[in-house]
């Protein structure tokens, strides 16, 4: 993605041309293929896309907690507050994890250590990033109260909590050290709808309170609409559309984005069939030449299949990685 000249402030998080590959069974999986994004303090960026599009990989790359075996950050740069993160020594990186940047994970049922008390798990992250004078237990109990869990439950184990409460514990762990950047990887996907709303409210409240930058990974457009400032749409490891929430929702330009919105059933209409996007996501070990979406795109032309597509600007000023946006908008109109 090109530089964001629209932004006035220096972004806290800046990812440029990130390429991440996995090696699996002798084949190379192209998980992330040249992603650039940026985020300022206090703002929320929504990262939208299907499963397997590479969203979690981007988040894990920022923290550098990709699995050792086989994962490689092949190209690109990530910087936090101007500091290059990819070349930091490991002990420096550890000071950042949990402290400056922290992550909320997708599946609360498995994200907590089953044999450790939840209070201790919160206290652990506090202890790692504080000096010896801090009362870790007290601070952990405070965090519990903040996320809405009674402090008496400090000594209980994860199996004694419900899914929603477990996610709250994870949020407590993530926010215990007041991180500047919070990576939330589909935090509500595994929860019931009613709990979803509570948890999202909690995250947003805390974000506002601590002025945390939030990178929200999700495939729920409704959540995006409520919470995010900016939106980036990912397909097959590429950001295909990037702009403010209003831009994306009012004027979706990329065929994939259009397809996403089209797939959302409309409450007001009486429809019999849903409108999925035809076809399947591409095999990440064998990506198509040119545009990754071209096999499924009804606007695809020869020029789409030859070379990687560069980024174009839409009429209202946001980014779109499609070479036929003019033709598409003509057809749509």
């Amino acid at each position: 993605m090109s530089e964001n000249e629209v932004r006035k402030n220096v972004p806290f998080l800046s990812v440029k041309d990130l390429v991440v590959e996995y090696k699996s069974d002798g084949q190379i999986v192209h998980a992330v293929n040249g992603v650039s994004l940026s985020l300022e303090k206090g703002k929320t960026l929504g990262l939208v896309g299907e499963t397997g599009a590479g969203k979690t990989t981007i988040a894990k790359s920022i923290l550098r907690i990709l699995p050792d075996v086989g994962a490689k950050i092949a190209k690109g740069s990530i910087s936090l507050d101007g500091k290059d993160v990819l070349n930091l020594p490991e002990n420096e990186m550890r000071k950042i994890r949990g402290n400056v940047v922290s992550m909320i994970f997708q599946d609360p049922m498995t994200a907590l250590n089953p044999v450790q008390k939840i209070g201790d798990q919160i206290a652990e992250v506090i202890r790692l990033h504080s000096d010896e004078y801090t009362d870790f237990e007290k601070r952990a109990k405070e965090m519990l109260e903040i996320v809405g869990i009674p402090a008496e439950r400090y000594s209980e184990y994860p199996h004694q909590f419900s899914g929603g409460m477990k996610q709250r514990v994870i949020i407590a762990i993530a926010l215990a050290c007041n991180p500047t950047l919070l990576l939330a990887d589909e935090p509500t996907t595994a929860l019931d709808v009613t709990i979803q709303a509570q948890v999202m409210d909690l995250i947003v409240d805390l974000q506002k309170k601590y002025e945390t930058a939030l990178l929200l990974i999700t495939h729920d457009m409704g959540v995006v609409a409520t919470v995010c400032d900016d939106v980036a749409v990912i397909y097959a490891g590429n950001i295909v559309e990037y702009g403010t929430k209003e831009q994306i929702f009012d004027h979706p330009t990329h065929p994939y984005t259009i397809g996403l919105f089209g797939a959302i059933p409309d409450m007001n209409e009486d429809e019999i069939w849903l409108h999925p996007i035809e076809g399947l996501p591409p095999d990440p070990t064998n990506l198509p030449q040119g545009c990754a979406f071209s096999p499924r795109c009804k606007y695809a032309a020869d020029e789409c299949r030859k070379e990687p597509i560069s980024v174009y600007k839409t009429p209202d000023g946001h980014d779109c990685r499609c070479c036929r946006i003019n033709e598409i908008s003509t057809q749509e109109d």
């Binding site: 923290l63 907690i65 550890r94 949990g98 994200a111 250590n113 790692l128």
Partner: peptide
């Protein structure tokens, strides 16, 4: 491979502690 190991790493726990304690 478990998720809570990733959680531990994301907290900034040293690798040795991750292996032995978690």
């Amino acid at each position: 491979r478990a998720d809570y190991i990733t959680t531990a790493r994301s907290k900034g726990v040293a690798e040795r502690q991750v292996i032995i304690k978690h």
